[in-house]
Design a protein around this nucleic acid. Sequence first.
DNA 1: ACGCTCACG
DNA 2: GACGTACGTGAGCGTA
Length: 933
Amino acid sequence: MSTTFGKGHHLHLIDGSAFIFRAYHALPPLTRKSDGLPIGAVSGFCNMLQRYVETNTGPDAPTHVAVIFDKGSHTFRNDMYDQYKANREAMPEDLRPQIPLTRQATIAFNIACEEKEGFEADDIIATLAVQARTAGGRCTIISSDKDLMQLVGDGVEMLDAMKNKRIDRDGVFEKFGVYPDRVVDVQALAGDSVDNVPGAPGIGIKTAALLINEYGDLDALLERAGEIKQPKRRETLINHADQIRLSRRLVLLDENTPLDFTLDDLEVREPDADLLMPFLAEMEFRTLTKRIADQLGVTPPAIEDTPATAPDAPEVADIPFDKSGYSKVSTGAELQEWIDRIYERGYVAVDTETTGLNEMTADLVGISLCVEAGQACYIPLIHKAYRGDDLFGSDDLAEGQMPLNDALEMLKPMLEDPSILKIGQNMKYDAKIFAQVGIHVAPIDDTMLMSYAMHGGLHNHGMDALSDRYLGHTPIPIKPLLGSGKSAITFDKVPLEDAVPYAAEDADITLRLWQKFKPMLHRTQVTRVYETLERPLVPVLAQMERTGIKVDRDTLSRMSNAFSQSMAGLEDEIYEMVGRKFNVGSPKQLGEILFDEMGIEGGKKGKTGAYATGADVLEDLATEHELPRRILDWRQLSKLKSTYTDALQEHINPDTGRVHTSYSITGASTGRLASNSPNLQNIPIRTEEGRRIREAFVAEDGKTLVALDYSQIELRILAHIADIEALKQAFRDGQDIHAMTASEMFDVPMENMTPDIRRRAKAINFGVIYGISGFGLARNLRIPRSEAQGFIDRYFERFPGIRTYMDDTKAFAKEHGYVQTLFGRRIHTPNIAAKGPHAGFAARAAINAPIQGTAADVIRRAMVRMPDAIADLPAKMLLQVHDELLFEVEQGAEGALIKAARDVMEGAADPVVKLDVTLNVDAGQGPNWAVAH
DNA sequence: ACGCTCACG
DNA sequence: GACGTACGTGAGCGTA
């Protein structure tokens, strides 16, 4: 057994990461039956190991073997070049928890399992391969990674296990055009976009090999670069010589990795049933356990057949909610213990406590963490000392708290570590709070967004609702801690003995929800929706919100004054007409004046017993009376003043001079965003007076606002989904879509089109999107219901696809309880089977949702791609208004921005959905939003 | 707390 | 046969 590795020995080195990723991508997202733990990659990994063991017997069998893994995300290459592997996509989060299990699997198979902090697996492989060669033995590297090809030769070979193809010196030459000893030179020139090795711009493997073969090696080439005939190539090599040398250092493997084991430790060992069987059984791999048990001649252990829990049924939490598992972290040593536990796990649930709900002005008060259900901590940072009878509290800090900066310094590397998943409930909030203190949290998972992807339309997605529904636990309410109304306090005034259980429980709940939702995402088939439309939007929106938009206070203030004066004038006229003063803003008083005192006919009372005085009612009365018109004018000014010119001023952040809205990702069931505090998605535009409010939304000096909006996106999507050839053709031809509809419906040639006929067609087009009804159209067009119904019948006759779409959609909703967008987003329609008027609402919502929702998905996709697309431009994305994106860009770069952003927006459906219509984007620019739109 | 009204897509 | 209806939002105000 204890012979020294040497001649006649044969070492196999298995590239563990390659096995893992192959296994992950080759298999569907399997989960462990008993608890939903994702184990697809582990299963594939074990099968690959098993096949490896089976096939490597006989005369050429290895005498030594090890599986080599990467460890840690930071290696010496990052110290050389901080952009190394910076383009790497984050590891899929259902793979992350499986990584430690693949180590365990290797050990269970009784195969040596090696890794070293700060080094890549490739370096360990290089070191061992060279040791084996030096000792006079052979080595086979089981991998197809081209970075390892520099090691081939003199007894070192590679084996592509999938293709079962050996790669020797000639194989390397085939791939690189040079033999192994010059591979690094070629790689240094060609660079590598996957690992983000820069190389020489414009030079690929072919050209690189050509140059190296001509000049012998890289140093000679760089030295004699001046001799190169092609001017461009010559320039590139001379100008980028340093970058090329850096690239070579990055791709050159370290053959002297310090290892705390020797080749002899890797000697092949017999499979050990006592080691392997328990592991396979724990993973609940029934088939594999049985097969290997047969081969080893042992009895397979029993695997309990735990029934899977019903997909959406709330289940009693296995671990009770118990405050004894919650602790306070007061010292660096205690915090370090938590950080160590987090690194062991690879994920952590995080929650922040702050002094308020507005992330732009709130201060971080404390942080809670949870790595295992029932065990959580709270790190209080700036809680104030509590003095019993002191109503005003104290400015002194409470005892037993770490200094804020010390805690943040310790937490920052973990929160920013790409290998640690940070789980939150509404992570946009916490990410913005952390961003305030210079911490950029990534990668993240968000239980609120998971719930939204799975259950949009069924219920809201706040933590209290989710905890009640999915954990059967009502969280500690915040109200008693903070109080309410005038005497309400901020969280930093909450005594620590109350703050710890409250805050720790939030992290605990978040972790439990995540554990519960993770496997549910796959089962409900909305993983792609979550991964592409929800999760990546968080950092994008956080950035937009933090950027904000400049709003000119003076402009608003002047408008407010002007509105006040006009309103006062109108009030005088109104009081004159009525004969006395009253509250013009009170619909109740107004209704009584109009319909009782003045005796105007046709007053209708609603269900609350008050007369309806809405704009449509007053509009009708205005033909006969003067008062309603004055009221309408007054109301318009009142609305503009109170909701916009006054309120917006209150929202200007004193530090930034800008207005920072907050987008709600889960607010609208269709997938649209909602904007609040303030709502910047309903800034006036339809009337001239209102539109002028947009003049107060301005670009900074030296910059321009650029607005891009999708033209008729919902009608285009309708044309595609309902497959209306005439509509699709009209969009292809760039026709006026409403005029075309009018022409079709009313048999009017396009050249004879009148504005009124077109207006009617436009109303019908929109009506269709909303789930048209004769009543609704009649009211909108102010025509008799029978006439409206006639229009609809005619529309269906001319475009029969519409009726089919509506009927099919309703039937789908009834059968499944939800409808879907083209990108797979589900919108639940729980009332679709209801009786009475509810049913009508639900049916129309079901018809509208796939159209509105698909448009929402499209712009979400554009927004997710936008930061990369405009990264090189001096531009920032500021706002989203459903079909419009607003940017601020340095003067001079407007054209470049419009080109880049338009490309992203127009191509946003690709490659997942191939639309039969093009998406067209209109652009505008100017010093303020009124001009830009 | 709730309904009415009205701003937007 | 009558009922009551365009889809999706958020904010301010009056009224209870």
